[in-house]
Amino acid sequence: MLLSKHKKNHNANSGKRLLVSINVLGSAGPIRFVVDEEELVEAVIDTTLKSYAREERLPRLGSDHRAFFLYCPHHGSDVALSPWDKIGSHGARNFVLCKKPHTTNEAADNGSRTSSLSRRGNGSWKSWFHLNLKISSH
């Protein structure tokens, strides 16, 4: 009797659970796992990177969650989600994980290389996606 009351209280106090699907740019398929809707975006990125590494997917991404953006493609916005937002606050379950663009110090390179940001456009997932569609349609 006491055990069942404890389970009911625990379920009443915990938030809704969501099955999220995270598409990692450059990877074969999405990573799927269940999260609490109160989970922070930062923690979801961290869990995605750990799952990705555990599955030994390529390309290797590393484990620093600060080096990645999480986008919600259904919102029609190019703006990355804030790491401090709650994942359930966006009303979506499908997301795109992108590595933040790296810029090189052009002064140190004496102008020999352009920044990777300028080579890749604005660094958003949409520009990468559209570029790959154009290449594959030929």
Rank of each mutant, 00 (worst) to 15 (best):
D36W: 05
K50M: 09
D46I: 06
D36G: 03
T48Q: 08
D36P: 00
V34F: 10
A43K: 14
A43C: 08
G26F: 14
E55F: 07
E42C: 04
T47C: 10
L25M: 08
S27H: 10
E55D: 13
V24G: 00
D46W: 10
E38D: 11
A28R: 03
E42D: 13
I45L: 10
I22F: 00
V44I: 14
V34M: 08
V44L: 08
S51R: 07
I31N: 02
S21E: 11
E39F: 03
K16D: 12
G29T: 10
N23Q: 13
N23F: 05
G29N: 02
V20I: 15
E39R: 11
A53P: 02
T48K: 05
E39T: 13
E55R: 13
L19E: 09
L25G: 06
L40Q: 10
T48E: 05
G26M: 06
N23K: 10
R32E: 04
L25C: 03
L19T: 14
A53D: 15
V20L: 08
I31Q: 05
I31L: 11
G26T: 01
T48D: 08
S21R: 13
T48N: 06
A28N: 13
R32K: 09
V44D: 08
G26L: 01
P30R: 08
R54M: 12
L18Q: 06
A53E: 15
E42Q: 12
V35A: 12
I22S: 01
